[in-house]
Design a protein around this nucleic acid. Structure first.
Lengths: 76, 76
DNA sequence: AAATTTGTGGGTAAAAAAACCCACATTTGA
DNA sequence: TCAAATGTGGGTTTTTTTACCCACAAATTT
């Protein structure tokens, strides 16, 4: 039904992973920078989590980018 | 303590309001486009809500902008 | 070959958003 | 002047994230 949400979450996850790999960080390394459990970051990257703005902010901090970078995805 | 979150949510809310007013929409009009209750949008604009990505997506749809536009804020 | 690192997935309790509703004061405009 | 529209805030229930933990297979390193 509402697959635009799922598509969006998948693209978002891809972007997180791309930025993380770009910076040569493992899930556990990023986890420490973000105060987010590594297994949860894994789920975010897989598009399995519909995170809140505060979590997006933590990820941006850990990845050292402006929050809007995380939404720099080809959506529509 | 963690006021960066609150600052961020306030700036985010301001951006939503700015885009909404720019498009000359009332809360109730935007509400219909977003399927989000108008009173909840009011709270979001006031920085009182830590919304999820799916809600951000709905707002972007209703405002007819790319999701990352909503994070186009002066944050750090 | 053995040890370590890495990504993934399943599970839990607590906290919070989502999705509603309604009331009220103020502004707008017919 | 009076009705309609607008923004704000309080409240409730359901659903979901958050914030943890642990186990395991596969890849990597030593």
């Amino acid at each position: 039904m509402d697959n635009t949400k799922d598509i969006f979450l998948k693209l978002f996850g891809k972007q997180i992973k791309q930025l993380r790999v770009e910076k040569k960080l493992s899930l556990r390394e990023l986890s420490i920078r973000c105060n987010i459990d590594y297994s949860d970051i894994s789920k975010i990257e897989k598009g399995k989590r519909n995170i809140q703005l505060s979590t997006l902010l933590e990820l941006a901090k850990g990845l050292e980018v402006h929050p809007k970078e995380l939404l720099n995805i080809k959506y529509k």
